[in-house]
Design a protein around this nucleic acid. Structure first.
Length: 397
DNA sequence: CTTCCACAGGAAGGTCTGGCGG
DNA sequence: CCGCCAGACCTTCCTGTGGAAG
């Protein structure tokens, strides 16, 4: 019986016409041949960077805009194009792209090590003094006799300011090369709390990427879908639905593409011949849930326990949750699960981290005579919350 | 007006792991 | 093997603070 149904399952997949013809076009890694609805930004960037083609050092650039507004895409696109042109002109131009968050670049050591790695130099992850890596970094850049365009994506996760300071001063140490920086951030406030000298150096030019609106998202999706999917697999309104949902979410194109891709995946998995609006709804839930589950799973034990305490308090429905409440419950749970409790100072930091991850919300409020604290709310709801609770129980047991 | 709660969150330093070069 | 290094993770100690209560 079980075997028969398995055979049926194979049959369904084998007889089914695939819905995707080039799934890659709906994934983040895909760089399209042009960047629709970002013409203005492309032009501005190009105008600034064109100096590199004359071998001059262009201004440093700071780019901001929310997630999925095309910052990364445009920067990479431009560098590719300029690279091509530099080649035909016989100029030495090297564009390097680094994502500070993904590559965990938060110290000068790591920054230099990553750049060196991209230039084909091996540097150990740890063990060497930072000084030595820095020396090698300068040497290698100079040896290349090139203009470097250094793209630092998610630069706001680079909290250590000495890293940025080092970078803005690199040019003074170089004889034969030039470095110009493109910093990318999604919070516009990032530069505000920087050292004024670093700020002015970093944002000699500033570019803002506005969110896409629903019609623009629709157009982008349509173009990508043409490449990615077999014609006619999308039912009426599917693209519009994805665009609308993503537009609500601050015009995030990545979200829109994810929605569409997951919706198609769901349809394909169920052996259905076309994608419906229902698939998009399900995709929305699935993306949320998957994200939450993934975060919870990768969180260290102590952090999981803090989150569990918050969920526990939330279930009690006793109104506002304060740091003190959490710490109290957390302490009890530590006993129960046989973990040595951390200090309140540390738990406070863990709470901040959970906030950064978007699992909880935290607001500082003052209750006058009764102190000043953060009130914490749970940002995870519905299916994602149920699933999260499950995972936590399993992980902590 | 002052007092004072219940924390926020900065600073400095400790401990441990994993890796370096000699 | 040694002495040294970076980084993750914590602790200890600390100063700062919005606003209801007195």
């Amino acid at each position: 019986m079980a075997q028969k149904s398995l055979q049926d399952l194979f049959d369904i997949f084998l007889n089914q016409q695939p819905l995707f013809i080039k799934k890659e076009a709906l994934q983040e890694t895909h760089t399209p041949e042009n960047v629709p609805h970002r013409e203005e930004q492309v032009k501005q960037l190009a105008t600034i960077l064109v100096h590199t083609l004359r071998g001059e050092k262009p201004s440093n650039i700071f780019i901001y805009g929310k997630t999925g507004t095309g910052k990364t895409l445009v920067s990479k696109f431009i560098c590719g194009e300029i690279g091509k042109r530099a080649k035909t002109h016989g100029l030495n131009l090297i564009a390097l792209y680094l994502n500070c968050k993904i590559d965990k670049i938060n110290t000068p050591y790591r920054l230099f090590a990553h750049i060196l790695y991209q230039l084909g130099e091996q540097v150990p992850v740890t063990g060497l003094p930072t000084e030595e890596v820095y020396r090698k970094f300068i040497q290698t850049l100079d040896k290349n006799k090139s203009t470097f365009i250094l793209i630092l994506d998610e630069i706001d996760s680079l909290t250590d300011t000495s890293t940025l300071y080092n970078l803005t001063r690199v040019n003074t140490q170089l004889q034969n090369s030039r470095v110009s920086l493109i910093g990318i951030s999604n919070s516009s406030g990032f530069t505000n709390n920087l050292d004024p000298r670093i700020r002015s150096s970093l944002s000699e030019e500033e570019l803002v990427f506005p969110p896409y609106n629903a019609p623009q998202l629709k157009d982008i999706l349509f173009k990508r879908a043409e490449i990615a999917l077999r014609p006619g697999v999308l039912e009426e309104g599917v693209i519009e639905k994805c665009a609308a949902l993503a537009a609500q979410e601050h015009g995030d194109a990545r979200r829109a593409l994810d929605l569409l891709r997951v919706a198609v995946e769901l349809a394909e998995r169920n052996g259905e011949p076309s994608v419906t609006i229902n698939h998009v709804d399900t995709a929305q839930k699935k993306i949320d849930t998957d994200r939450v589950v993934e975060i919870i799973k990768t969180q260290p034990r102590q952090s999981q326990l803090v989150l569990y305490s918050i969920i526990y308090l939330k279930d009690l429905e006793k109104g506002d949750i304060s740091t003190g409440d959490i710490f109290e419950i957390y302490g009890k749970l530590c006993k129960k699960y046989n973990l040595t409790p951390l200090t309140q100072r540390r738990v406070s930091d863990l709470i901040s981290e959970l906030e950064m991850l978007g699992l909880i919300g935290a607001n500082i409020i003052s209750k006058g005579r009764y102190g000043r604290t953060r009130t914490i709310s749970l940002d995870v709801v519905g299916t994602a919350l149920e699933k999260g609770r499950e995972i936590l129980k399993y992980e902590l047991a």
